[in-house]
Design a binder for these strands. Sequence first.
RNA 1: GCUGGAGUGGUGAAAUUGGCAAACACACUAGCUUCAGGAGCUAGCGCCGCAAGGCUUGAGGGUUCAAAUCCCUCCUCCAGCACCA
Length: 788
Amino acid sequence: MEYNFKAIEKKWIANWLKNKIYEPDLDAPRHGRGKSKKPFYNLMMFPYPSAEGLHVGNMYAFTGADIYGRKKRMEGFDVFEPIGLDGFGIHSENYALKINKHPKKLAKETEKRFYGQLNLIGNGFAWNEKLETYNPEYYKWTQWIFVQMFKKGLAARKKAAVNWCPQCQTVLADEQVAGGECERCSSKVIKKELEQWFFKITDYAQRLLDDLEKIDWSGRVKIAQKNWIGRSEGAIIKFQIPNSKFQIEVFTTRPDTLFGATYCVLAPEHSLIKNLESRILNLEEIKKYIKNAKEKTDEERIVGGKDKTGVELKGIKAINPATKEEIPVWIADYVLAGYGTGAIMAVPAHDERDMEFAKKFNLAVSDAPLADRKEIIKKVGGKKIVNYHLRDWLISRQRYWGPPIPMIFCEKCGWQPVPEKDLPVLLPNVKDFRPTGSGKSPLATIEKFIKTKCPKCKGEARRETDVSDTFLDSAWYFFRYVDHKNQKEIFSSKRAERWLPVDMYIGGAEHAVLHLLYARFLTKVFYDWGLIDFNEPFKKFRAHGLLIKDGAKMSKSRGNVVNPDQYIQKFGADVLRMYLMFLGPFEQGGDFRDESIAGIDRFLNRIWKFGGKIKITPNNPASAGLTGQTNQNAKLEKLLNKSIKKIGEDIEQLRYNTAISQLMILLNEMEKSEAVPKNIFESFLKILAPFASHLAEELWEKLGHKTSVHLEKWPEYDSEKTREKTFELVIQINGKVRAKMEAPAEAGEVELQELALNHPLIKEKLAGQPPKKIIVVLGRLVNIVIQT
RNA sequence: GCUGGAGUGGUGAAAUUGGCAAACACACUAGCUUCAGGAGCUAGCGCCGCAAGGCUUGAGGGUUCAAAUCCCUCCUCCAGCACCA
């Protein structure tokens, strides 16, 4: 009978749903008591639903995560594997703009489509707990978080030069600018001076850095976060401006080079410049330079970096506190306003950039010796400080498709949070959701929305019209999964205590300094508020690799994006799942090539045929007597035990490619048998089950089982049975293989040496020459070293 | 420039962490089979060589009885950060 994957997969998807085999009891007591099992929160990064449908990259990530979860379930854990949609935000909204469909309408359609597809990929999702970030039941709590942040002093409005994407017509957080381009639409980002809402993630910089030590995460992601936080230790040193009350405060990591500081440089935005205006002799020139610098994009400032620009503040000098010499003061845009004090002391002898600048403008270069690192700061009245590269999280977005920021401005009382009882602030259903281009959100055009009462004085007031960053939605969704219907509180502490923190999290490395950093931040904030008793959200995180097609990353612009639907249609979900996992190590990614799917398709068909044809003998092969078949069974049993061990270890390390190859080796061997003991075939189905979830289930049922193979216990291996009685002894002469022979596994050094020296081929090669040295590696090889 | 990671057959990749390089597949070749199809089965398949044999893990050197694996020098590719003082 042909393997009818369509019917079989459909049958089991319905069966699993009906029997709720992937729905843990979220309220079960923690563990130990009664029948409740140990909880295991198996999380994957929820997708943002683009209308093109599920990307094969999503399926790759989800399959890898699901296999891990399925094994944990079989190991006796109560596995919780939720799914949802990150449907609010610029990505979804930009697509809505492109096809000119209202985001709300589009969301309903993509939701249906995505859930339909996700239902077909063979994952063990807890469908009852699904959530979408654009539902008021969800974003009510996103807004609640904002209100608490404000009340606790962690949300504040600041005027700053912020990133502005001219295409998306909104501001962006630093983390959402990659190489000077908008993370979403790849437009060049420009700087704008605007007043915006920020979350004070910088208050948590040190904790975010320190706690990286205690979590089990992919190394590359930890390193990326560490670099992003960018701690550097240094000092602030003051340079007095003669005949004035002003000083230039500079930040340096090398105070010991102070003697070589031959000029100072201020960032063009530096506030001191205004104070000194009356004394600047070339004020016009300076003003022109400042104006120019502000209009440059980041890109221009960086690319222009090779050719530094700057203007001297004529009439202004500064005194080097170490040498007491008067040195010139410049402004230049190679000094950044947002880092350190926005001013530097330039030491051309020890800094390439300063040297470049000095050369261009013919400034003095000093080769003064280094000062003593320990004392110098005190001597010149400086102070030690720690600086971070991390900036505060810019949370405002001048867009439509997000949770309105729940704040109200009153002329009398200032900014007031919307009272909790009035949440959610519903996103109004406007017709024109397009960005206005005026620097304001589309909500700013809706009088009815804006006009409100001040919660404090009840006077006339207006609402904030910006929405919050979509990364706020996704920074806490894993908390909500455990209690997504709760409308009284963000989540119950009972459920959080049972299920959180997340045991295993799998997702893309591209979120290293975005989602993964924000989620850690909010978790620490929740901890400080007493909502939870842990301060890291994900105990274990593994970044999966990237799927490549035709040698390049899949992207719409290249037109090489693979949609899983057609493959599921043609081969079935099991084949696609296994094919994706067979491509290469999960954490490394792989090259998607149509032609190689055939190998997995054949493999699963062979399993199917084998399951239909084989004669199955009773469990105990020893009782069958000493026949040739028994020898074959003993061999099979040994291979099975080895396979259970290897596949178990491979899954634990996400090395699914080698686990699958071991399954193939096992099938190859089983096919050589005329009859296979029932217990061996059953074990094979169990270790196959995490990979080919439907096929394994169908064959399991065919063996007469009434319950799901996915609820079976993961087989144990007998280490006694993985051990061979003999091994192939490799005999080398001067490190080159000259002969091989069977040798007893127990053989000692002397015995192996004897065996090697007496081997006819070796005897011939040696021709009576005495060995200089003999190295014996037990259970492996003998290397005979002779004179050459 | 800085920080990580990686370079192994025609292709995707394995290699018990210093012990037989190329497992498992794809593609290819030959044969069988077939109501001819992108099906199934069998065998072969790193390179040179008729063979014995020799060579082979980006390049070069080193350590070792033994190196894809450790050390040094260099080259290439990928990812992230980048005028952060």
